[in-house]
Design a protein around this nucleic acid. Structure first.
Lengths: 108, 108
DNA sequence: AATTTGCGCAACTAATTAGTTGCATTTCTT
DNA sequence: AAGAAATGCAACTAATTAGTTGCGCAAATT
């Protein structure tokens, strides 16, 4: 089996592979650090569901929280995001090469 | 709820969010069109499992197959891949902006 | 013609996942 | 001090998922 470094990428994609979670990431991107209750307001699900999804994002290293008083403020993990960017670029690059290769296939 | 166009992205990420499937994509990228049996050779799972995973990739629009004799040759869907690239770029861009914004938060 | 090869179909299991509800705890507000 | 707000913990359900095995069929091989 080839070792492309993409081995660790699957859990990250999986973490992003849920509408609710992707919406949370989206809101954290554009809305900055937010509390759980605040984040829940934008979704159709329960606060508990949101909490679980945030936990999953945290396990994937995509987000982290800090307690301030009774609130838990969630934000995206910038370092991890940069890492994910790396994966995305790598995959994109690989795909580009694949597209080129397929193009050649078609043309010849 | 904001409409960023990322709504359709979740199923794509989900399709990529499995090690076995990501490995299949990887092999289809570098190995070109391959039959199911041939693809199975590279994995630790059954042919049936591979078939199911390919079906999932197909449902996500990432791959498609064509029958030639008794063999089913699978290949990546280039148009769809380009579309996914678009999503990735969009998300990356959004994340970059988020990173910049967070940077400002930290600095001020 | 007989055998091997590549594959689909179907039924089943075990594990995971997304979601809920109910209750307890801590912190803030009045 | 009393009540409201923000959250965690736990138990539970329903649906999905990753995987298997067994069988049958059509296409290639010998």
């Amino acid at each position: 089996m080839r070792t492309t470094g993409l081995d660790h990428a699957a859990p990250l994609f999986a973490a992003l592979g849920d509408e609710t979670r992707l919406a949370l990431v989206d809101r954290l991107c554009s809305g900055g650090p937010l509390s759980i209750t605040h984040l829940t307001a934008g979704t159709a699900v329960t606060r508990q569901a949101v909490t679980k999804h945030l936990r999953i994002l945290a396990d994937a290293g995509l987000a982290r929280d800090s307690q301030r008083g009774r609130e838990h403020i969630w934000e995206l993990d910038t370092a991890r995001l940069a890492e994910v960017r790396g994966y995305l670029d790598q995959i994109s690059q690989q795909w580009d090469q694949a597209l080129d290769r397929l193009k050649i296939f078609v043309e010849e």
